[in-house]
Design a protein around this nucleic acid. Structure first.
Lengths: 139, 139
DNA sequence: ATAGATGCAAACATTTTGCGCCGAG
DNA sequence: CTCGGCGCAAAATGTTTGCATCTAT
């Protein structure tokens, strides 16, 4: 989603829009990889050298809590982030374990199946984590 | 899987079986929750007060690398562990976000689907992480 | 006998927090 | 003007590591 749209959502929720927050939000929205906080901090500093790491963490946490950006835990110990997607965009990840590359994908069947499984177990799904780790098939 | 079976596998792989390692392995195999390292360390110390936290970490990492126990990252910052399962047992997790309870489940359809998705993307699946987070449905 | 495992404490990496100053609403 | 965000440095948390000693094979 575009950063301006998300700024709009921030305003609606009463989140004070400081320069730092706008810059950090922009960095996350412009990223098409899945940067971790240190990386977001670096990129934010290229735009505004006065942003601290602490503020980066605080902003990222704030935006995550409000559901305005998504946190990924890909098992390397650092949380990675991406801007929230529109309904139609890719929401699952496959990690190429040889290169670390993250491939996004969609799957309607999976979408439906996870709901069905949760229901079968007597739960309403509030979140999920589903990542595949693979090596490229030769040829 | 029983700890004696896993000890057998350790021997086959040339892993030196010290008292500490046997104790830690036993703790993981006897657990039916999914303890994190600090908890494994505590339980191991009840059996043998001379096991250090460092050794607990080293052993857990060793066993994980050899595929003799499984690491779960449930997003709370600490890795959790479980002993490896036999082919037929449950291998997916649903977390009750209200209580932290972990429900294990199986799903043949999911099993097949994840393989199919990886293949479609041109990858051979080497690992996966799939967790559901939910709240109990009322009634 | 000896390669490798242990315990301890210090180091690390990531993330959080206390505090006095500053800026958006 | 005021509440809350900011930067800084310190702390907290989870995990790893260097080193001298000990132990399973």
């Amino acid at each position: 989603m575009k950063h301006l749209q998300i700024e709009e959502l921030c305003a609606q929720r009463g989140i004070k829009l400081t320069e730092q927050r706008k810059t950090i939000l922009r960095v996350v929205c412009e990223a098409n990889d899945h940067p971790h906080v240190e990386e977001i901090y670096k990129r934010a500093n290229l735009k505004d050298s006065k942003i601290s790491l602490a503020t980066t963490y605080r902003t990222i946490n704030l935006l995550t809590e409000f559901g305005l950006i998504d946190r990924l835990q890909l098992g390397d110990g650092k949380a990675r982030y991406e801007s929230i997607n529109d309904e139609t965009s890719n929401h699952y990840h496959l990690v190429n374990v040889q290169t670390g590359e993250i491939i996004e994908f969609n799957d309607a069947e999976l979408e439906e199946l996870k709901q069905r499984i949760a229901k079968r177990l007597g739960y309403k799904l509030v979140d999920y984590r589903m990542e595949l780790y693979g090596v490229p098939m030769e040829k």
